[in-house]
Nucleic acid binder design. Sequence first.
DNA 1: TTGTATGCGTTATCAC
DNA 2: GTGATAACGCATACAA
Lengths: 370, 370
Amino acid sequence: MSPKPAATRVTSSQVAKLAGVSRTTVSFVLNDVPHMGISEETRERVLGAARQLGYVPNAAARSLVSGATRTVAIVTPHSEHLKVDAFIPRMLAGVNDTCHAHGYKVIFEPIIDTGRTGGGFIEMVDSRRVDGLIAINTPRIDDVHLARLASEGFPLVVFGSQLIEHTNIYSIDVDMREASRVATRHLLSLGHRKVAYLGFASDEYHGVTERLYGYRDAMREYDLGSEFERIGFADFSAQSGCDAMEAMLDRGPSFTALFAGNDTIAFGAMAALRKAGLRVPDDIAVVGYDDIPLAAFAAPPLTTMRTSPYEQACEASDLLVRLMAGERPVELHSMMAVPLVVRQSCGSPVASTIPPSTAAGGSGAKSGLA
Amino acid sequence: MSPKPAATRVTSSQVAKLAGVSRTTVSFVLNDVPHMGISEETRERVLGAARQLGYVPNAAARSLVSGATRTVAIVTPHSEHLKVDAFIPRMLAGVNDTCHAHGYKVIFEPIIDTGRTGGGFIEMVDSRRVDGLIAINTPRIDDVHLARLASEGFPLVVFGSQLIEHTNIYSIDVDMREASRVATRHLLSLGHRKVAYLGFASDEYHGVTERLYGYRDAMREYDLGSEFERIGFADFSAQSGCDAMEAMLDRGPSFTALFAGNDTIAFGAMAALRKAGLRVPDDIAVVGYDDIPLAAFAAPPLTTMRTSPYEQACEASDLLVRLMAGERPVELHSMMAVPLVVRQSCGSPVASTIPPSTAAGGSGAKSGLA
DNA sequence: TTGTATGCGTTATCAC
DNA sequence: GTGATAACGCATACAA
């Protein structure tokens, strides 16, 4: 069935035989077991034999007896995200770097692709293939499985799923709603009143609704509504952002500013704007979200909210490593704030800055499209 | 040492006991062993017991006896690439999708980060943690280890390392030299004579030198030299592309066109150009390489060479799966051609198209900077 | 048709 | 100080 690879397969018995000792001694020496009183001479002989034979312990055998695999998995939604967006890749880099530094391998596991109805990552846990799990932006359907794992004490760190209410899940989130308020307020404070919003995905994701809420919050602070025709939804990619923006323009919209749910769709939206003969920021001001590496090099450089996925992934992984080591920090949840990075996609203030809720309607707004 | 996770740990013995049969029977039923004549009734009882207990076979035990792990690793250089560029992420998506479709988990393993002097991935093989390996753009120092694995018959597919001369290594490459010729020729055919080249990394990578050679080939076809001051080197990121371009501009260069080693640094270079008051394509024409998802949404949309990392990764993974199944296709190497995607970053022809080697020097070239 | 016995390569508990 | 021996959980040749 499974063809045995031809790679050398050296066992500890062979090392023992060559060194003239028992397998136990080999194990003691190789694992540096203290207080076993191994003579320096035997030690050297064993080490030499192991080196000479190129001995590497069999991982399966080792984990069968130890119960640990020195492997973790990073669970994400579609692998599609890897193709079109820069968020998950940076997250993966952080998880990888941190986990590797602690001697863990990392399995990359997108779950929706499996076609399961949720909990597609459970089998990895139950079959004991991994010692811990980091779940990134998993859809709501998996919340219940995440909760089960956590309640069983399995090392798990959840990122971006807003499971704050759960008292046994370790989680890290950014305050997306507040971040969206900040982003939208930035446009409002510049004098814009007709601000459009472009969601980056369907509302199956926690992040999408959170950002929409934040946008609405800020609009309300300025006594502004969020009209349907100024709200659009894309689907992760720049292409979808471009399509969504074209649709909004076709709907005969009137807006002078755009808050895009992420930078990638902001790129797409800006391209659509350009194609329609609209200039950024002169005609339309744009704020993105994420601060992907290319945001600073867009034309014009994109003003955006700086989520720091690499750093956040490092933090999540550090926590996971501690959980796998048996620690149980008292702090369950951490909520991070993200800064606004002002570049040039919003231009200069349209009118003198108008404080929220005291401005007289859209008086300070630009004339815009309509 | 290693704290046993509290997750349920059901063994086949427990299933056997609940079903009132032996462990062997459980194994036969669960693995669908044919010609064993298991009665339909027992079968149902076993399946029911397994489901009731939530039984999942222990992966370590299974792989210890079977010799297989149902896991592959994708070996890449720095994890840094995940942070700043879009090539490796798309590659990973392809490997992931294909391998998952065949029931394999995938370990993401950047090797240079380990600080080893090469062969950092060998231990995964020797410890039998993986059944196969895909090596992407590994540096030259690892060639020897790759060759060793291949000669031992270990399932291995190498991508982008140009190891064509090896008669036992399965490899997939794109003809980067030819691609670079095509890219450079495109600029030359548009009438440009002063064409600059920006490498995307140090020449530790096969791809960097290949692309430089291709650029020189094309220049030579037009009887043009490749002056040192028109050659720059970046380091993967858009930021480095921006820095490198600024340095080239500082050196008081004279060029009317740029061939950038990848799209990411092209973004950076274009930003530097813009900052210097130069317009693309009016003052400088730009061709990139890779066709990353954002290339089409750059301002102006970037003309580039379309490498298709996702598709290439799928092909490499398909091959790996076949190797792991024991197949040994006769075709060892495959070399792919990549198409030029013309968008708007090169504008229109500068003069009427001039055939190679017959043009009178730089007569058709634009005046440019100097 | 089902159960018994053995081995996979380690680690760990004991006597010696 | 060192060396047998028993798990770990599963698969399978073989016996019943």
